Computed example of a mutant assay.
Amino acid sequence: MIIGMNPYFMFNGNGIEAMRFYEETFNAEVIEFKTYAELPNAQEGDEQLLLHANLKIGGNDIMLSDTDPDHPIEAGTHISVALVTDDADQTSDIYRKIREHDGEEVMPLQETFFIPAYGKVKDKYGIEWQLMTTKED
């Protein structure tokens, strides 16, 4: 079952600055904050890059991240939609359907160290979807 859908803002190295700005400007609550330094293959300087943040603004969530420094964002790709399910099979099915209808794989759907299923796909209309399955508690 789909359990959430949020805008996901991408930045070229100033994600932490943007997160702090939105936190102060909108009196947002920081629900989650991780830097690239938390990745298994972290390098020096990765603590300055935002891996993932979730902010609550009123009753709404937004997510933010710096992009991989080797793959800077281009205009039009700085906002994507994060779709969260509680079923990896459903996530896979959605990913497959987008691909089968002239979609483009951005990142393969796969299990990661932080979540059972995560991948990115751009639909035929140019919208990038970050599809993910939550961990069971």
Rank of each mutant, 00 (worst) to 15 (best):
I2N: 04
N6F: 13
N6W: 13
F11E: 05
G13E: 14
G15C: 11
G15E: 05
I16N: 10
E17S: 07
A18C: 15
R20A: 07
F21N: 10
Y22A: 07
E23A: 09
E24N: 10
E24R: 14
T25F: 15
T25E: 01
F26Y: 09
N27R: 07
E29F: 11
V30K: 05
E32R: 07
K34H: 04
T35K: 10
Y36L: 09
A37Y: 04
E38M: 12
E38F: 01
N41W: 04
A42C: 00
A42M: 01
E47F: 11
Q48F: 02
L49N: 12
K56P: 10
K56F: 08
K56Q: 15
I57F: 12
N60F: 11
N60C: 12
N60R: 14
I62R: 13
I62P: 06
I62A: 15
I62V: 15
S65C: 10
S65F: 07
P72G: 05
G76N: 14
H78C: 13
I79D: 14
S80E: 13
T85M: 06
D86Y: 13
A88H: 01
Q90A: 04
T91R: 02
T91M: 03
S92P: 00
Y95S: 06
K97I: 13
I98P: 00
R99K: 04
H101F: 01
E104D: 05
V106H: 01
V106W: 02
M107V: 06
Q110S: 11
E111K: 13
E111N: 02
E111S: 08
T112D: 04
I115L: 10
A117L: 01
A117Y: 00
A117T: 01
Y118N: 06
G119Y: 01
K120L: 10
K120H: 02
K122G: 02
Y125C: 08
I127A: 12
M132K: 00
M132S: 07
M132F: 09
T133G: 01
T134G: 04
T134F: 03
K135D: 06
E136T: 00
E136W: 08
D137P: 15
